[in-house]
């Protein structure tokens, strides 16, 4: 099967500081890939490079076999196909919940307002936020904001959805509501790449787990491989620290 996203020898420097050193990994259709690892290991940077929010310093990222870092590549068209949810939600504060979910399809995909509204309502219902369509982001709780952000990304009907620590800014009560939405999406077969610190979630939901440390992929495999039979010393150490908490 053709890989939707293939990352090879990816490098990223911030000044002299090398954050990503030679990262290789690939995502197939229907994969739910979770990226775990300590803070500062380059997980978020990897995800931001995939969505071109950061420009890779070296290496290659292929989307359906085409390099996305090349000259003249349509960044906006690419980002419309690869959705992203952020740790800090980044909902548009000047719009209501419904407008947040409609603006992408209307302005970027050039859909009619009626069509876009229909889609927006459909996805808002899916995340359970349909009663709140008239609310402004400021008036919502963190978990509700993140669910709207997911609906906004889904309204673009992306091929891949990236999650950058979607629950890290939420208090424990709200983590559950967001994770259950994501579980549902995984069940429906949406291709997702998730950076997370929720180990139990990663174990249950993902088809593929990547453990990153110091800018490289230290170990990867099925959830069983990583969580039950980790091979590398570093992985064992990391998981042990997590279980102790």
């Amino acid at each position: 099967m053709e890989n939707i996203i293939k990352v090879s020898h990816l490098q990223k420097f911030f000044g002299k500081n090398q954050v990503l050193k030679d990262v290789d990994f690939k995502v197939d259709e229907g994969d739910v890939t979770t990226i775990i690892g300590a803070s500062g290991s380059g997980k978020s940077t990897l995800l931001r490079c995939i969505n071109l929010l950061e420009k890779p310093s070296g290496g290659e990222i292929l989307f359906h076999g085409k390099p996305i870092t090349g000259k003249g590549f349509d960044h906006c068209g690419y980002r419309a196909k690869v959705g992203m949810c952020f740790q800090s939600f980044n909902l548009f504060n000047n719009m209501t919940v419904l407008e947040n979910c409609m603006t992408g399809p209307v302005k970027v995909l050039k859909k009619s307002r009626e069509k876009a509204k229909e889609k927006a309502l459909f996805y808002l219902k899916k995340v359970g936020m349909d009663p709140y369509i008239n609310a402004k982001p400021m008036q919502l709780s963190g978990g509700q904001k993140q669910r709207v952000a997911i609906a906004r990304a889904l309204a673009m009907e992306p091929e891949v959805l990236l999650f950058d620590e979607p629950t890290s800014a939420l208090d424990p009560q709200m983590v559950g509501e967001v994770l259950s939405v994501m579980r549902q999406l995984a069940k429906e077969g949406l291709t997702m790449i998730i950076v997370t610190h929720e180990m139990a979630f990663a174990r249950d939901v993902s088809t593929h787990v990547v453990y990153m440390a110091d800018g490289v992929i230290c170990e990867e495999g099925t959830p069983e491989d990583i969580f039950e039979h980790p091979k590398k010393e570093k992985t064992v150490e990391f998981l042990k620290r997590f279980n102790e908490r």
Partner: peptide, 23 residues
Amino acid sequence: IDPGQTEGAMAIGMNHFQTMINV
């Protein structure tokens, strides 16, 4: 304006002009 707003707009595929006008 929080840079996150720009990132949110870029992440759904808006270009600079659309981001500025709408968000």
